[in-house]
């Protein structure tokens, strides 16, 4: 019986000890969430990081919510100037120093991003001078503002979307979109791996000497893909197809370097059967 009480009290005691600290922690880093921000990250914390770095004059590019190279160098310069270890990571210490040294007008920044305005967030400059409304946006935007405004003061309301996105090296997001179209048109009924495989075949062809050297060249090669010939490529692809394309670009090749694939149920060409086959995924046979 006594043992039970002990085992019960210990955790309570521990949590009592920790609680004040966690409250403290929350108070201090009230601005950033308590994640360590590293290169490649996307989101609210990155927007804040960029805004604060810009406030201090380290970051001169667009505040877009993506931790890219410019943000990385800005952060490292900040760490250097403020005598912090230069690692390019926004950890607890760096964030605390940054919060202390700079101001962040969250409402202003979010409002600008939501409206799609061009804006900056430098310290010591009048805010009205730092934002230029998009030519399309009506001049009397403030009158319209009430609808998004009530959401803004709430601490964790709908997070602002970054205005940029990461794309893998060598491919624009439009290339990815085009590939997603092809993958969706060719293999939307297939398992996920089968969709990655179709994307991988497109990439293998781009790299092969016997095919055109661009994504669009490969996809639109006459007769290469049935989805192109019958127009199914112009269906709107879903998120899965896009994810499959990203996986393939990022190096997953489920096909074992295949250059061709066909559906044995519908293939009309005899020649395709003569290719050495590597494997079968879903309904498609992949070959050299």
């Amino acid at each position: 019986m006594k043992k039970k009480i002990v085992t019960l009290t210990i955790p309570i005691l521990i949590s009592l000890c920790i609680m004040p600290f966690t409250f403290l922690e929350n108070n201090r880093a009230f601005a950033f969430s308590n994640q360590v921000i590293q290169q490649g990250a996307v989101g609210d914390d990155v927007i804040e990081l960029q805004s604060r770095l810009q406030y201090l004059g380290f970051y001169n590019k667009k505040i877009d919510g993506v931790f890219g190279w410019s943000t990385y160098w800005a952060l490292r310069n900040f760490q250097y100037e403020f005598g912090l270890p230069i690692d390019g990571l926004a950890g607890t210490e760096t964030k605390a120093k940054l919060v202390k040294a700079s101001k962040y007008n969250k409402q202003f920044v979010k409002e600008q991003i939501n409206k799609g305005n061009k804006f900056t967030h430098y310290g010591g400059v009048d805010q009205n001078k730092q934002s230029a409304p998009q030519s399309k946006a009506p001049a009397k935007a403030p009158a319209k503002a009430p609808s998004p405004k009530p959401a803004a003061p709430a601490p964790k309301a709908a997070p602002t979307k970054p205005t940029a996105a990461n794309t893998p090296g060598g491919f624009s997001s439009n290339d990815i979109q085009l590939m997603a179209n092809a993958v969706y048109g060719e293999s939307r009924g297939e398992p996920y791996t089968g969709q990655v495989a179709v994307a991988a075949v497109i990439l293998n062809r781009v790299n092969s000497a016997s095919f055109p050297n661009t994504v669009s060249g490969v996809i639109f090669e006459p007769g290469a893909f049935t989805a192109v010939a019958d127009g199914q490529i112009w269906l709107t692809p879903n998120a899965t197809a896009k994810k499959a394309v990203l996986d393939a670009i990022n190096g997953i090749d489920p096909t074992g370097e295949a250059l061709y694939y066909f559906n044995p149920a519908t293939a009309t060409s005899k020649w395709i059967w003569s290719r050495p086959q590597i494997k079968r995924i879903g309904k498609h046979i992949f070959c050299e």
Partner: peptide, 26 residues
């Protein structure tokens, strides 16, 4: 490179024409 891109625009995918394209690439 131009010849290669021209080959890519012809409807020859189902015809084995790889060797010629490889030759061009070489």
């Amino acid at each position: 490179s131009e010849a290669h891109s021209d080959v890519g625009q012809l409807p020859l995918t189902l015809l084995p024409f790889n060797k010629t394209e490889e030759f061009l690439a070489k």
